[in-house]
Design a protein around this nucleic acid. Structure first.
Lengths: 211, 211
DNA sequence: ATTACTACTTAACACTGTTAACCAAAGGAT
DNA sequence: ATCCTTTGGTTAACAGTGTTAAGTAGTAAT
């Protein structure tokens, strides 16, 4: 019953929790199930977490970290115009959501379910992806290819729009007549296009990389 | 215990359900609580609904209807350029979400919680707002002020982006340094700007109507 | 008058998050 | 060597959940 006893049960528990989440979905994520998988009693969870919400917050934190890692990777490998970079970030985001839907959805769980507010200190730690976009935006503004707006606010709207798009994709609310990948690509194109400085056309971004 | 016995309990139950939802939030929406408020036994709900999910679907349907009503209203009263109309729709959407956050959030519940799939026939009935945008987009394309894209897909991305924006606002994930209304206004501006035909500037839309 | 149906109820099941009470092992102090 | 306290876990129990099965009044039909 001991697979990962690093610094105690805590990690083992959140690992078990993630396993249950991925295999059974958030709806069937129960403390007893997690405990069983971790080879421990259900109430033991309360020795390491304040309650279920707290444990879920740990899951969220983890998921955000993974997403951010993915984004940093994309930002690092992409060279060229800020427009290109921002598109790469958007695609990385979309890909993560598509490949790990349940992990992605747990990130935005805090809102729809009225969970205990996600502690803002954890929030701060998780702002890496946000800052990535800010940097790219600043550079783009400097180069004159991106509209002159507050990068802080604009970065937020950027992620928010993307989230909305992936949210309707994952909830399968898309009209069956609409192709999913085409939809995502067009959404990304629109979002990026919304930040582009009017009149500064570049001919390498209306194309489709993904079919 | 009989306040609205129109065609039986069904309406009375969903009404009670909406009351509980609005006053206590989705998380505390339980069948027994609903039943108590409706002055009826908990199991009676199963005479009119397949289960809790089905009842929630009715709530969703209702919420969508209200939102659509609001959108139709906005579309009707706004005259002028398609750009103006599309902005008006966006604002109406945002206002609804701000004024009725719990009702709004229930609409997008289907995804985050892994609920029984929202039946697609109900879905079709609820597409009024979607079609409103399609019409405006078509007209805008014709007038040459909106990018030439498939209106069907574009309409979806439009709503998706808006949803994302309101989703992060309602989940209070916004950075405290960022003003909420300013954020919404800028997001709308970006979204609309993403559909605008490059080079066709109109000088009445970067302004702030809301402070 | 008896049957059948309708609209509802009560009882019960298996499960949930959470709290209280308990317990065994491990040191430390005397 | 014995007592005390702490640490890290346990089992038992509570109130509440969605859901199913069985039962029961009231009404309509024959």
């Amino acid at each position: 019953m001991e697979e990962t006893k690093d610094q105690g049960l805590k990690l083992q528990i959140v690992e078990a929790a993630r396993e249950v989440l991925l295999s059974e979905g958030y709806r069937n994520l129960s403390l007893r199930k997690i405990a069983r998988r971790a080879g421990v009693s259900a109430t033991s969870i309360y020795l390491h977490f304040e309650g279920k919400d707290d444990l879920v917050h740990a899951l969220i934190e983890e998921a955000i970290a993974r997403l951010n890692h993915r984004l940093e990777q994309a930002a690092g490998t992409t060279k060229g115009s800020p427009i290109n970079k921002i598109e790469a970030l958007a695609r990385a985001y979309a890909d993560f959501a598509l490949e790990h839907p349940r992990e992605y959805q747990v990130i935005y769980l805090v809102s729809s379910d009225e969970m205990t507010r996600y502690p803002k200190e954890k929030f701060r730690k998780a702002r890496k992806g946000y800052e990535l976009v800010i940097d790219v935006l600043k550079q783009g503004i400097q180069e004159g290819v991106i509209q002159k707006t507050k990068p802080g606010t604009a970065a937020y709207t950027f992620w928010a729009q993307l989230h909305g798009v992936m949210s309707v994709v994952l909830s399968k609310r898309l009209d069956t007549r609409i192709n999913q990948n085409e939809f995502i690509e067009e959404a990304i194109s629109h979002i990026v296009s919304g930040y582009r400085q009017q009149g500064s056309l570049e001919m390498d971004d209306i194309k489709e990389q993904r079919i």
